[in-house]
């Protein structure tokens, strides 16, 4: 075969490959455009208009929707509530997951059963389990409250108490998330070479704390970062428990971002502010994702 025919056949192969590539990627690209890119552009445009659902005319209003959003006490409160919720759920679910993973990792016979139990909430329908939690913590009928009463802790109404409601929701959030994080930590722990612990033993780092501080924790760095990021995003999207249990009550103390967005956008059909909130939400999510990409570059040493 001469060089010329060779390059012709190579070219035709490349062309065939490119045609196939476009043919296979086009349907998905079409969906990406109409279900992802276009909606984001549209929601951004709407956030700059006074569009109302079903209206035939609309006009540009600049940043008025954003101004309204920032002036909206309910929105700011829901934002603050969401941050408080995240601030409880992330350390709680990450910290407990790490402890559980370390304890479970060292078990031999009972490892599988503990894994199953802790992972159970991850698979189950949170709505149904929220109904159960609501009942468990019911101030008059709930077994947890009656047990607490019997033990002399007095009456308490977790979801009715403005100071406790976010904590109550966060407990459910941790309950659901901890098994997921545990699995990720277990994967990270398994990847730590046993030799390193042996070397630490010989070097004298053989106490529980030293082994953790000198080997486990630094070696888990990338895993921990990843777990913190996914947990933050999951916690930031809290919606189901609020929608089922508190609906933002009492006194808006459990209003969270997505629940407010849902109310404003799909119950009040206040499209302008809702789209502004959507953009705010997107910005937050992107910031977390970028932070993760940046930190992963810096934190991985090998």
């Amino acid at each position: 075969m001469t060089a010329a025919t060779l390059s012709v056949s190579r070219n035709s192969q490349m062309r065939a490959e490119a045609i196939a590539g476009y043919a296979f990627a086009m349907p998905a690209l079409f969906l990406i455009l109409i279900l992802l890119i276009l909606p984001i552009i549209v929601v951004f445009m709407i956030s700059l208009t006074d569009y109302q659902l079903g209206a035939l005319t609309w006009s540009w209003v600049g940043l008025a929707n954003y101004a309204e959003m920032m002036a909206d006490k309910a929105f700011l409160r829901s934002l603050a509530n969401t941050f408080i919720y995240v601030a409880i759920v992330v350390p709680g679910s990450v910290g407990f997951a790490l402890i559980i993973a370390i304890l479970v990792q060292e078990r031999t016979k009972s490892k599988a059963i503990y894994q199953t139990i802790f992972f159970l909430p991850v698979t189950t329908t949170l709505i149904a389990m929220s109904v159960v939690w609501h009942f468990l913590l019911n101030p008059s009928l709930g077994p947890v409250t009656s047990l607490a009463r019997a033990l002399g802790f007095g009456d308490f109404d977790v979801f009715g108490d403005p100071d406790l409601v976010l904590v109550g929701l966060a407990v459910i959030g941790i309950w659901q998330l901890v098994g997921f994080n545990m699995i990720l930590f277990l994967a990270g722990l398994t990847a730590i070479p046993r030799d390193l612990y042996d070397a630490a033993d010989i070097d004298g780092a053989d106490g529980v704390w030293d082994r953790f501080a000198r080997v486990t924790w630094p070696m888990l760095g990338p895993t921990t970062l990843f777990v913190v990021v996914t947990s933050t995003i999951t916690a930031f999207r809290v919606f189901d428990t609020v929608a089922v249990i508190t609906r933002g009550n009492p006194m808006g103390r459990s209003d969270v971002l997505l629940f407010t967005l849902y109310k404003v956008g799909f119950q009040d059909f206040n499209i302008g502010p809702a789209s502004a909130m959507t953009i705010a939400f997107l910005v937050f999510v992107l910031v977390v994702a970028l932070a993760q990409a940046f930190l992963i570059d810096r934190r991985t040493h090998y």
Binding site: D195, A199, G204, G221
Partner: peptide, 28 residues
């Protein structure tokens, strides 16, 4: 192990990847 005053060189070397050479050697 630390009280036996033995040192071990591992097949994988078992160097702590997050520590510098200096920190690795200083560890014991």
């Amino acid at each position: 192990p630390k009280q036996r005053n033995v040192a071990m060189v591992f097949q994988s070397y078992a160097l702590y990847p997050h520590m510098s050479v200096h920190e690795n050697m200083a560890m014991p």
